[in-house]
Design a protein around this nucleic acid. Structure first.
Length: 425
DNA sequence: ATACCTTTGAAGTTC
DNA sequence: GAACTTCAAAGGTAT
């Protein structure tokens, strides 16, 4: 399997490897993408909608007739989000500063391979230009391998990394009390897994390494959105190449941006909030913050929010979905996530190796940061918190089709044939 | 109110 | 170590 990171591997176990199918069919996929027509999109939309209507979202659908698609943008989202980002900047800088000290310790402990991993990253990987649309790009420059800020950093003071927002992505404003997991010091590092006494690899990756901020503590966003240079829509004629610029995608992502005043629960001692922190009810702590803004305390709710859940860091595909969902929704005028996710899954496969690599790399950093922020956390912690369908059903769906390089469609004709990769047909 | 659907990837579990 | 399971996001839908 080709490794994205030639620099030495992902110490986190995730190799961020590219999928095999990429090797075999990248060109075909591109060709395939070019084959899509507006009518195809309409068909897809129609079929997906029909699927939902007829089967409740999970069924297999044939192609259906349909007419044009919408291509309206949702710029309002963006402007609101941008405003939020700007206002959170100051608060965030302080949080980052606080984070950075302990991180030095990590850096000292940073294993060579990990360091290499960070140092050998494609220098262009996080250039803002490559990440248009991807909200993290606002921090992109901060991810320069050497941990220094890019000169670009000062060029566009318009949007700044939202302080109080995840350094990697505003989608993931890390936060939380979990630094205080157990008796754990709220400040990193913690070499020992609080749980089970497992010794974790030193919390090496210095956040500042990929999360560095200028002395001012305020990173700059490079608004250029090179990501758009890639066809957003596999259906060429959607004309959806760049209609949804950073504005849209960022807007979609920024929707989760932390409130600047969010200092209540769900806020880590570092001051960095995390969207992954959810109250037992499943609602994110942001809601809790909103409640806390109300004058009178609500003891009951406080109780409820006592034990927030730390969510898993998002993987590459999840990051991609989060970014592109808004685009697909606007483009296809679909709202049903199941259908949208099918489209996104195909688009994901249609992405070039490089394009996917960006997301793998971001996901890798997400995991690193997550590990630093929540040293004792394990994915297992969340097991059982989400009630799952019956095992019977699960097995049924699994038996329907093992995940292949082209996804997990239980039956390949679950999606209109014209949207399937050539090999599948 | 909450599980399901749907996608991919990461991580945990089981054998 | 392979195979399997669970969860991560999202929002309409079904129960």
């Amino acid at each position: 399997m080709p490794q994205l990171n030639s620099g030495g591997g992902d110490d986190l176990g995730a190799n961020d490897e590219m999928l095999a199918f990429k090797d075999e069919g990248e060109q075909e996929e591109k060709i395939q993408a070019n084959v899509f027509t507006e009518g195809d999109l309409a068909d897809l939309k129609s079929s997906l909608v029909n699927e939902s209507e007829s089967t409740g979202g999970g069924g297999e659908g044939g192609g259906g007739g349909g007419t044009g698609s919408s291509s309206t943008t949702s710029s309002s989202q963006t402007s609101n989000a941008a405003a939020t980002v700007a206002t959170t900047a100051v608060a965030h800088s302080e949080a980052i500063r606080r984070l950075q000290d302990p991180q030095r310790v990590y850096q000292e402990k940073l294993p060579d391979h990990m360091e290499d991993g960070l140092k050998h990253q494609d220098p262009g990987m996080y250039k803002g230009s490559s990440y248009s649309g991807y909200p993290f790009l606002m921090l992109s420059d901060a991810y320069l391998p050497n941990g220094s800020m890019s000169p670009l950093s000062n060029k566009v003071p318009v949007v700044q990394p939202s302080h109080g927002v995840h350094p990697l992505t505003p989608l993931i404003p890390y936060s939380n009390e979990h630094f205080s997991h157990g008796s754990h010091s709220p400040h990193l590092p913690a070499d020992i897994n609080q749980k089970q006494g497992v010794h974790r690899p030193s919390q090496t990756s210095d956040i500042s390494g990929f999360y560095s901020l200028p002395p001012s503590g305020v990173g700059q966003i490079t608004p250029s959105m090179g990501w758009q240079s890639q066809p957003v829509c596999p259906f060429q004629s959607c004309g959806f190449r760049q209609p949804y610029t950073s504005a849209l995608t960022a807007g979609a992502s920024f929707s989760r941006i932390t409130h600047p005043l969010m200092l209540g629960s769900g806020m880590h001692t570092t001051g960095i909030p995390h969207p992954g922190i959810t109250s037992p009810s499943g609602k994110q702590e942001f809601d809790h913050y909103d409640r806390s803004m109300k004058s009178q305390p609500e003891p009951k709710r406080e109780k409820e929010a006592k034990k927030p859940t730390i969510k898993k860091p998002l993987n590459a595909f999840m990051l991609y979905m989060k970014e592109m969902r808004g685009t697909v929704i606007a483009e296809c005028t679909l709202k049903e996530s199941a259908a949208i996710n099918q489209i996104l899954g195909r688009r994901w496969h249609a992405l070039s190796r490089e394009e996917q690599a960006k997301y793998y790399e971001l996901a890798r950093k997400e995991r690193q940061l997550h590990m630093q922020l929540y040293p004792g956390w394990s994915a297992r912690d969340n097991y059982g918190k989400k009630k799952r369908r019956t095992r019977e059903k699960q097995q049924d769906s699994n038996s329907g089709g093992k995940r292949s390089a082209f996804g997990t469609y239980k039956e390949k004709d679950a999606v209109p044939a014209q949207f399937l990769p050539m090999e599948v047909l």
